[in-house]
């Protein structure tokens, strides 16, 4: 007797890793413009949308880097380990393009030579090792240029379509950077699954729901959101480490975009900070000081 193929929910399995799409920056720009709408910080969001547009243009012009995974790669370390120089070779050419786009929008940023001095601060932020957000528009544009080359690298990777046992879930398996938040998908197949999104290369990797991603403590996490506004955005706050990172729920808003929605919901950060929690997720476009 022949049985039909199994169609139980347990047969569904979603991949551990998702690589970024080729229109990532265009989607961010469009989302920023939507969010700008009637927001009090509309000018700011619209300027960042211009930066994302410039990133997409540079991304398209860059083309495939031609860097691939070594055969039998075991995912015990970040894919990029030891190849940073190769991957980043193009950023000094991209920075001036982004800088001129910002200059056209009325934001003055330093030239390439003086921007180099900001590199350590930007790297520390993206690695999740900075004690404050970035301080100047120059640093944000520098981070944007690095995002373009790293996203190009991540986009060219042949990531496995099934489960991968990652050695480290707190940092990006592709580039080793800290995640900027998590997206919870809606719909058939991977509905309800949570993926963290890398702040540098936008690779997404699966993480268990209802558990702190900053300290891995198995205790109960709280979800803080704004009543009657931004239903798709919640801060996941942990009583153990007193840290939080934001979650973006696609079932509340299908076009939610972690980087863009993060910037449009800084009010949530202020309110959550007042409750005594500190942010453990970097966003290179968030400036303070």
């Amino acid at each position: 007797m022949q049985f039909p193929p199994q169609s139980l929910p347990s047969a569904d399995d979603y991949p551990s890793l998702l690589r970024p799409g080729t229109s990532l920056f265009a989607r961010r720009a469009s989302r920023l413009r939507t969010l700008a709408g009637s927001a009090p910080a509309a000018d700011w969001l619209n300027r960042l949308a211009l930066l994302c547009d410039a990133q997409q243009t540079a991304f398209d012009a860059l083309g495939d880097l031609g860097l691939r995974l070594p055969a039998g790669f075991a995912w015990q370390q970040a894919v990029s380990a030891g190849r940073e120089a190769e991957i980043e070779a193009a950023w000094p050419a991209i920075y001036p393009q982004l800088a001129s786009a910002m200059a056209a929008a009325g934001v003055a940023v330093a030239d390439l030579g003086s921007a180099q001095a900001s590199l350590p601060a930007v790297r520390a932020l993206l690695a999740g090792e900075a004690e404050a957000a970035l301080q100047s528009p120059t640093e944000a544009v520098l981070a944007a240029a690095l995002q373009v080359v790293w996203t190009r690298f991540a986009q060219g990777l042949d990531v496995p379509t099934g489960k991968v046992l990652l050695a480290e879930r707190g940092h990006c398996p592709c580039c080793g950077s800290a995640p900027l938040g998590s997206i919870v998908f809606a719909g058939q197949g991977r509905g309800g699954a949570r993926y963290q999104e890398c702040s540098l290369c936008a690779t997404r990797w699966n993480a268990v729901r209802a558990r702190c991603t900053l300290c891995d403590d198995p205790g109960v996490v709280a979800y803080l959101g704004i009543e009657d506004a931004f239903p798709a955005v919640r801060a996941e706050a942990c009583e153990h480490c007193k840290g939080y990172s934001k979650l973006y729920f696609q079932d509340k808003d299908l076009v939610v975009e972690p980087l863009a929605d993060d910037l449009a919901t800084l009010a949530l950060d202020v309110l959550v900070g007042e409750q005594g929690y500190a942010r453990g997720a970097p966003n290179p476009f968030l400036l303070t000081g």
Partner: peptide, 23 residues
């Protein structure tokens, strides 16, 4: 090495973010 930081109203009123058009 993971560090945490606060996003407070004073930080959002800073000059850098205002330079980018944040009101």
């Amino acid at each position: 090495r993971r560090q945490f930081f606060k996003v407070c109203s004073a930080g959002l009123g800073g000059s850098s973010i205002a330079l980018m058009g944040f009101s």
